[in-house]
Design a protein around this nucleic acid. Structure first.
Length: 291
DNA sequence: CAGCCGTGGGC
DNA sequence: TGCCCAAGGCT
């Protein structure tokens, strides 16, 4: 027995959050920016930054005209700052090759930097109302429980996961796009990773996980990412100095953020390689384009 | 494909 | 408190 898509769509219309990028007049550019920012970053932290960006860079060409350093600075502490570089690069391609219009075609979107299987389909569905299997961590969890009766989703398998969701989508574009948003919202608000709120679930009666007696997750243990002491932490500390500085800084200033010089220098070098930092002629360090 | 890439909040 | 988690993508 399949899920009741009408119930989910109605539930979303009733209790879905009023997020600014869901407003009917939000541009496709606004949707794209939100999707990139929301990759691995919670809604509550994205929202204020997204509002700033939309006021400052309302079209792709406006962002493209900015230095990458300024974009990285405006990215603030959303995390994974390479996303800011990729978004800037995507905006440049959109401005130069697509007439400043965010593409609506999945394959064209996939060709843009920073846009993968999820984001391409999310933009097609949420900005353009298209039917496309939108598979994120929320949707994978909802499908694992409600459809497959498992306690949680196992390791991601792009092909299989998209086929699962594809089978749930209504034939028509508009309801399919609404269902995609509803599945994500259900995973975010009700069918959460920890302590799911099953009493409030609109598809409780059809849920295969309930029918199975709510079995524990039985798949392989998920790899846990360390953070303390990793290059990721050190890179974050280094970049944070530059975000807070007016202009270029001396290396001695950067040396203060981490005790181990080998790791520190390796991280500094990797930031230069990534294009998140630049070195000035006189050996100072700066955000790219800001010297 | 496994591992890496930031940051902060909740339990 | 430490651990888990959050609208992924890239190599």
């Amino acid at each position: 027995m399949g899920l009741d898509t009408d119930v989910l769509i109605d539930w979303f219309a009733e209790v879905g959050r009023d997020l600014p990028w869901r407003e009917p007049d939000c541009s496709a550019w606004g949707v794209l920016v939100s999707e990139i920012m929301l990759q691995q970053t919670p809604v509550s932290r994205v929202q204020p930054i997204w509002l700033e960006w939309m006021a400052r860079w309302p079209v792709p060409s406006a962002l493209a005209a900015e230095t990458t350093g300024e974009v990285v600075r405006a990215w603030g502490k959303l995390g994974y700052p390479r996303r800011a570089l990729r978004l800037h690069a995507a905006a440049t391609v959109i401005a130069q090759e697509h007439g400043d219009v965010v593409p609506s075609d999945v394959d064209t979107l996939l060709a843009l930097p920073g846009i993968g299987a999820y984001t391409a389909r999310a933009v097609a569905a949420f900005a353009y109302g298209k039917r496309a299997p939108v598979v994120d961590t929320n949707v994978r969890r909802v499908v694992a429980r409600a459809v497959h009766g498992a306690g949680d989703a196992g390791p991601a398998s792009n092909t299989r996961d998209m086929a699962d969701v594809e089978a749930l989508l209504p034939a028509e574009d508009a309801p399919a796009a609404k269902l995609s948003a509803a599945l994500m919202e259900l995973g975010a608000l009700i069918c959460t990773a920890r302590s799911p709120k099953c009493a409030d679930c609109p598809i409780y009666a059809e849920c295969a996980w309930q029918r199975n007696g709510r079995p524990e997750y039985a798949g392989p243990a998920k790899p846990v990412q360390k953070f303390a002491g990793t290059d990721r932490q050190v890179r974050g500390l280094l970049l944070d100095v530059l975000r807070g500085a007016e202009g270029p800084v001396e290396k001695a200033r950067l040396d203060l953020v981490w005790h181990e010089s080998g790791q520190r220098d390796r991280c500094l070098d990797s930031l230069l390689v990534d294009g998140l930092l630049e070195q000035t002629r006189d050996g100072l360090f700066a955000l790219p384009g800001e010297h």
